[in-house]
């Protein structure tokens, strides 16, 4: 049976763990808000780009010939895996790695190459026999627009130079703080942009294009892919923080339950010690009286 000292030590240990989980939850909440703001503005940017592409496609009737559209027979597939920067966020990283492993095992005739974003994915795959053609372990935690753009452009260059024939991204779609979903999306080649989106009604004046509608559309498509890439990283970052917030909240609650249980045990033990001492004193007094 544990002594009072043992129980007191145990309670102190759990209490300090609870302080850590509480602090981590608060940090995750702040980081989540930052990631959400960045994600929302990127979402707005993509919406506007998409609308511009749809409007231009209606003006240009013929099929556009763009190096990022159309596609070619797939011999090599590039897989961009966006994981978290660290653990303590439930099954967040594990689920992503599992999805990526499933993609790696699919269709053995196609060679697969990995682009790893986030430290957890990098730590998992770096010692394995998979071909890694790009890694950005710190991009999710310390993202900046410059670094995100550079990573997106590197991935596009791999496709345009023919090193890969298809680019797939595996990331976590942020639904809400409590809900997230793993998404697998083909980034390149671009199949269709803005499916289901309506073109803007024609204006009373004709639109002037500088330099030309074709040139603008040609420049828009790579930006759209960069935007999708950034959105995926930012969404994953928001999802990771949300997952950590929920996990740390649960850990804090569990620590409180443990503290309550041990406090109860502590009180019972203390009561038993007092009762025992009292009965010993009474028994001693009785013996002296006899």
């Amino acid at each position: 049976m544990p002594t009072l000292k043992d129980i007191r030590k145990k309670i102190q240990g759990v209490r300090s763990t609870q302080q850590i989980t509480k602090a981590m939850k608060m940090m995750a909440t702040v980081k989540l808000r930052r990631a959400m703001d960045a994600h929302l503005s990127t979402h707005l940017y993509l919406e506007k780009l998409e609308q511009m592409v749809v409007d231009l496609r209606t003006i240009l009737p013929e099929k556009i010939d763009h190096p990022l559209m159309g596609g070619r027979p797939v011999k090599t597939r590039g897989i961009v895996l966006v994981t978290g920067e660290r653990g303590l966020c439930g099954s967040f990283n594990h689920d992503l790695i599992k999805t990526c492993l499933r993609l790696l095992q699919e269709d053995p005739t196609i060679e697969k190459k990995l682009i790893l974003i986030g430290r957890k994915g990098y730590d998992h795959f770096r010692r394995q026999a998979h071909a890694i053609i790009g890694s950005h372990p710190d991009l999710v935690g310390k993202y900046s627009q410059k670094a995100l753009t550079a990573a997106a452009r590197n991935a596009i260059t791999l496709y345009t130079t023919g090193l890969i024939d298809e680019l797939v991204i595996v990331y976590t779609h942020f639904v809400s703080t409590l809900e997230r979903r793993i998404e697998t999306r083909i980034l390149l080649p671009v199949s269709e942009i803005g499916t289901g989106r309506q073109a803007r009604p024609p204006t009373t004046h004709s639109i002037q294009f500088d330099p030309s509608a074709e040139a603008i559309l040609t420049a828009l498509i790579p930006r759209y892919i960069e935007g999708l890439f950034m959105k995926a990283v930012l969404e994953s970052s928001a999802s990771e923080q949300a997952a950590r917030m929920v996990a740390m909240d649960a850990a804090t609650d569990r620590a409180q339950e443990m503290i309550d249980d041990w406090s109860m045990k502590f009180n019972r033990t203390r009561q038993a010690v007092i009762t025992k001492e009292l009965s010993e004193v009474i028994a001693g007094a009785d013996a002296l009286a006899d």
Partner: peptide, 19 residues
């Protein structure tokens, strides 16, 4: 700063899309 040089915009201008 347009792709082909700076340009100024005042209210009532014709629609324009540019890089």
């Amino acid at each position: 700063p347009g792709g082909t040089g700076y340009f100024g915009i005042l209210p009532g201008r014709e629609p324009l899309i540019t890089t």
